[in-house]
Amino acid sequence: MTLSNRLSLSLWSDCDPLYMQHQSLCLQLQDDHQLNVNLLLLALWLDMHHYLLPKLQWRQLQQDTHSWERKLLLPYRQLRRQSKACLATGEYRQMLELELMLERKSQAMILTALKLMPLEEQTSTSTNISSYHNLSHYLALFNLDSRNYPSLQSASQ
C-alpha cells in the first residue's frame, strides 16, 4: 500500500483514538497556544508510522491551515462557545456538529496539502531521529518543547 493510499484510508480514523486519549491536553494546547489539533494529531500519526515531514513543511501546513481557519472556523468556534449559555441542548449540539463539519473540511485540506509534500520514511537505521520528531517540529512552531508533554511523546512511539 502506498503512503498516499494509507493517508487517504486511515489517517483521520487512526487519529480518533489518539484524540480521545489526549482530548483535554489537545484542547488545552489549542486554547492556550492556538495549536491546530488536527496538525498535532498528524504529527503523532507520522511519528507512529515513522515518516518525517521537514520543518519547513510543518510551517507551511500551519500557515495554510491557520489562514483558512482564521476566516471561518475560529470565529464560528468563538460564537459557539459564547452561545452555549443561551441555547437549548439540541441547538448547541447543532452548532457543534457544524463546527465538526468545518474541522473535517480542515482535515481534507491538510490531507491534500500533505500528499504534495516530501515525506521521508524513517528506518530503524536512521540516525539522530527520535520517535517523536514531527511532534517536536510542530510544537516548536509555538515555542513549545515536546519534552514538556510526555503523554504525547509516549503516544507517538
Score class of each variant (00 low, 15 high):
N5K: 14
Q30F: 03
Q21S: 10
T125F: 14
S106H: 07
P150C: 06
M101C: 09
L61C: 11
L116D: 15
L79K: 11
L11D: 03
M109Y: 12
L39K: 00
P118F: 10
E103S: 10
L52M: 12
K105W: 10
L111F: 12
L25R: 14
H66C: 12
L29D: 04
L44M: 04
S4W: 09
L96S: 11
Y76S: 00
M117A: 15
S8F: 15
L116I: 15
S106N: 03
Y132T: 07
L100K: 13
M101E: 12
Q30G: 02
A88C: 01
T123M: 10
Q153V: 15
T127W: 07
E97K: 12
Q107T: 00
M95S: 09
M117F: 06
R59N: 13
L53T: 03
Q21E: 08
R80P: 01
D64I: 10
K84C: 01
L11H: 03
L96G: 05
T125M: 11
K115P: 03
S154L: 14
L152F: 02
M95Q: 09
L42S: 06
H137D: 08
T89H: 14
W12Q: 02
S136A: 11
L53Q: 04
A155M: 04
L53E: 06
H22R: 09
Y132K: 08
S10Y: 14
L46A: 11
Q62C: 13
K71V: 14
L11S: 04
Q153N: 15
Q60S: 13
L52N: 09
A43W: 04
D145F: 10
N36V: 03
L114Q: 05
Q94G: 09
L79D: 02
H49G: 01
Q21N: 08
L102T: 10
R93W: 02
S151W: 05
E69G: 02
A140V: 00
H33T: 01
N36T: 05
H66D: 09
I129Y: 09
L87M: 10
T125G: 06
A140E: 02
S156H: 03
Q107A: 03
Q82T: 00
M1R: 07
L74S: 06
M48I: 12
L3S: 01
L11C: 07
D16K: 13
M101I: 09
L25M: 11
S24I: 02
L73R: 11
P17S: 00
A140Y: 03
M95C: 06
R81S: 08
H49R: 00
Y132D: 07
Q82C: 06
T123D: 10
S151P: 03
E99M: 02
D32Q: 10
L61I: 12
H22F: 07
L114W: 08
M48L: 14
D14G: 01
L9A: 08
N148E: 01
W12K: 07
I110Q: 02
S156C: 02
D47Q: 05
M1Y: 07
K115W: 00
C26I: 01
S4I: 15
L52G: 10
R6S: 13
Q57A: 14
Y132A: 11
W12H: 00
E69Q: 11
Q21P: 01
N134M: 00
E121H: 14
G90F: 08
